[in-house]
Nucleic acid binder design. Structure first.
Lengths: 228, 228
DNA sequence: TTTAAACAATAGTAATACTACTATTTAAAT
DNA sequence: ATTTAAATAGTAGTATTACTATTGTTTAAA
């Protein structure tokens, strides 16, 4: 079976839909490669233009600036992640199983291919971990937020919060716990890799360290409902 | 009583100690004001130079670049926070009280004055919340980390982890929990302010929302040891 | 009184972020 | 089939940012 997945992303993110042209698609693909390679700070439209054999001015017709381009990539990721959560939770009844699956999705690499653009998943993952917070930790958040471009993040958060409430209806902070889960999955992966003293990975460097930490955290906070 | 607090910050952070001259001190003070006002992305040495009536080149003699200047401010903050934790925990015996105090320190504004430089504490606080992660979420972390400039952060984290272990010696992830506590205190404050849908603040907008969320989280994860 | 070191300012360059304008292609209208 | 206009990409710039080589001035030690 071969199917194509695409998401309708908020038009406010771009000036011209990169999905609407070949050049646009190459733009996104190469942007992911370059942002991974250089880090967002050193990534420029000039370098991206060189990579896809076009000019800066052309890229500016697609995106207002590099911040918006990153926002586009993240909107895509958040939408995809919400889809994956929905897909994987299909036909599951046990909310504990559901939460375990969510942690797995948040801490493991994205599944390679499966009916969607062949973005480099490993690179995309690293971008999510290292760069995602930079789209909202800016002076202009309030203004940017008005155009609803953070909706995919909020939706993902709400979906996880739903499962949290399903697991423990008495828990008071389902949304904050969900956003904490998402953000913590990012920086604990980052820390265990680059600043291990801020974690307890130890010399062994367990592969699923972050998943273990988050599982322990989540199921202690929500109580082991199997005991009830 | 009037006393002066100063920390010996790692020389690798700066080229020339800003504490060693009047101009240097004004530099830091104005940098805090400007970074708060403009956000780190829009903050430049040119603008800072204009503010303190000097030139870019002069600022470059103190700091390699604006990233290092931010790192200096954060080193100062982390050191100060570790001092505050140590100071406030003095003569406390109950580890639960200690943890409560730590959460208070992490979520409330820094005490105005108390024997140290009159940096604008409210601005400094907002900088910690919005900009701090930008000093390590960069491509060059590994290289930068070698010069030990993140030691104050690691020390603060270790100090909190100590109290965590004191409260519950069986808990397996004291350091990860501590770094999660610190980071979560930042972005839950940010979210509840700018992206409230990612939290449960509701319309009321409780003043101590983040502290309440963190307390609940921390003491559930570590178990209510008073029951033992 | 000399001298050298410490410090700050001048005057630049290269890279980055962004834009006005022009040329070309595509496709719809006549 | 030809005209026309809309869409698209490219040229050629500017202002700002990040950073440096060099010169000039002050300070304090010899």
């Amino acid at each position: 079976m071969n199917f194509h997945l695409s998401f309708h992303l908020n038009e406010k993110v771009y000036l011209r839909d990169p999905e609407s042209s070949e050049l646009g698609k190459r733009l996104i693909k190469s942007a992911i490669d370059l942002i991974y390679e250089l880090g967002f700070e050193h990534f420029t439209f000039k370098k991206l233009a060189l990579e896809v054999n076009t000019t800066e001015a052309t890229i500016y017709r697609y995106f207002e600036n590099k911040h918006r381009l990153l926002l586009y990539i993240l909107n895509w990721y958040w939408s995809y992640m919400e889809f994956l959560v929905m897909f994987r939770l299909q036909n599951m009844t046990d909310p504990k199983e559901k939460l375990k699956t969510i942690i797995e999705l948040l801490t493991q690499e994205l599944p390679e291919s499966s009916g969607m653009m062949d973005y480099n998943k490993r690179y995309l993952n690293q971008i999510i971990i290292s760069e995602s917070s930079k789209v909202y930790l800016v002076k202009e958040v309030k203004e940017i937020n008005k155009s609803e471009v953070f909706k995919p993040y909020k939706d993902l958060c709400a979906k996880i919060a739903e499962v949290v409430t399903e697991y423990n209806p008495d828990y008071q902070y389902p949304r904050s716990l969900s956003s904490t889960l998402i953000e913590t999955s990012h920086f604990q992966q980052f820390f265990s890799n680059y600043l291990p003293k801020l974690t307890d990975v130890g010399a062994l460097g367990q592969k699923d360290y972050t998943a273990l930490f988050l599982s322990n955290l989540l199921f202690t906070v929500l109580g082991d409902q199997s005991l009830k």
